[in-house]
């Protein structure tokens, strides 16, 4: 594992916006942990209910048969296989049906036909789930094709799916925020952070296909400030810790130019984006890429306008501290 160290983590007075964002995220994390788990429990119960899943699949196949033009090649091939009786593909389609907004809307609005009992049973359960969705923070605050109102483009950045998701984003927010905020100021930092988040969401929605799974998390925004940092510090030496094990000889510090880190992140997000299927939807790589591009553009603008404390930017690098011993 290789990890940037930069300037370390500064205090609140030196990085107020960074810490402010951190605490807002923390507050929403605590709120989401206290929410009732009924939505997750009911979802699990539904997915375990073979009767419900079988009914959903049959309805979805019916719907897809009538609306093939709405779907890409992957869905069409899955449909063909499911129609010919292939059990695995039937199961996959049954799961994918949940994410298809147009199908759910159609099925709820249609009067039950054929196996009326099964149809009514499905409708009843789906309505229950949609109702419970409203109590779930991810659906209340996340952005998706179901709800992409203006407020959601901001709110989604402050909600996380779990502690590890939160931790992963916040550690990078603190590291890069503390390095950037003293240079570009509070306003510049907030502009970069929120702007990257907004455009990250935009790119995500563009590539989310038919899926209605909501986007949550600060990844897009954090990717933006990471990209901004990498561009502003392009040729400067950046301290990285590398770590393989818990011993002096299995860890150390290395200095690499910042553009390498940008290259690594961009490449891995691009690879993730290319390797995922847009028809399956909900892949956050597109949000990362959107955020990175925004951060890069803002970085270029700031660079040319010299907005911020550019003297500080160059003063931070101390040649004599280039060599350090760890352990």
């Amino acid at each position: 594992m290789i990890f940037p160290l930069l300037n370390g983590i500064l205090g609140f007075s030196k990085a107020p916006a960074t810490w402010g964002l951190f605490f807002i995220n923390l507050l929403f994390l605590i709120m989401s942990m206290e929410q009732p788990k009924s939505f997750e429990l009911n979802m699990k119960k539904l997915f375990d209910d073979k009767y419900f899943v079988a009914t959903q699949t049959n309805l979805y196949l019916d719907y897809m048969g009538k609306n093939q033009y709405l779907y890409g090649d992957l869905h069409k091939n899955l449909y063909k296989k499911a129609k010919s009786g292939s059990k695995d593909q039937i199961e996959i389609l049954g799961q994918l049906a949940f994410k298809d907004k147009k199908f759910i809307d159609w099925a709820l609005a249609t009067k039950p036909y054929a196996d009326v009992v099964a149809f009514e049973y499905w409708q009843k359960n789906i309505k229950e789930i949609l109702y419970l969705q409203k109590t779930n923070m991810s659906y209340k605050m996340g952005v998706s094709l179901n709800d992409f109102s203006f407020a959601r483009w901001f709110s989604y950045q402050f909600i996380h799916s779990g502690f590890m998701h939160f931790f992963g984003n916040m550690i990078f927010l603190l590291i890069f925020g503390c390095a950037l905020e003293p240079v570009i100021g509070v306003f510049g930092f907030l502009l970069a952070y929120l702007g990257s988040g907004i455009l990250g969401a935009g790119v995500f929605l563009l590539f989310s296909g038919p899926s209605v799974a909501p986007l949550v998390g600060a990844s897009g925004a954090v990717s933006g400030i990471m990209a901004l940092f990498a561009l502003l510090y392009a040729h400067r030496k950046v301290k990285f810790i590398w770590f393989v094990g818990f011993s002096e000889s299995l860890s150390g510090v290395v200095y690499l130019p910042a553009w390498i880190s940008f290259f690594m992140w961009l490449v891995s997000d691009l690879a993730g984006f290319i390797s995922s299927s847009e028809e399956l939807g909900g892949i956050a790589y597109s949000a990362h890429l959107g955020g990175e591009m925004t951060g890069a553009i803002i970085g270029i603008i700031l660079f040319f306008t010299r907005y911020g404390n550019w003297d500080d930017l160059f003063a931070h690098q101390d040649e004599s501290s280039a060599t350090k011993t760890i352990g």
């Binding site: 891995s268 691009l270 690879a271």
Partner: peptide, 26 residues
């Protein structure tokens, strides 16, 4: 970590997509 993996990730990503889709299609 720094050199080989990113390159491999990028070059093999279209293939990963194919692997995912062909797995889904059986």
């Amino acid at each position: 970590i720094s050199v080989v993996s990113p390159l491999i990730l990028l070059l093999t990503s279209p293939m990963k997509k194919q692997i995912l889709e062909t797995t889904l299609l059986g």
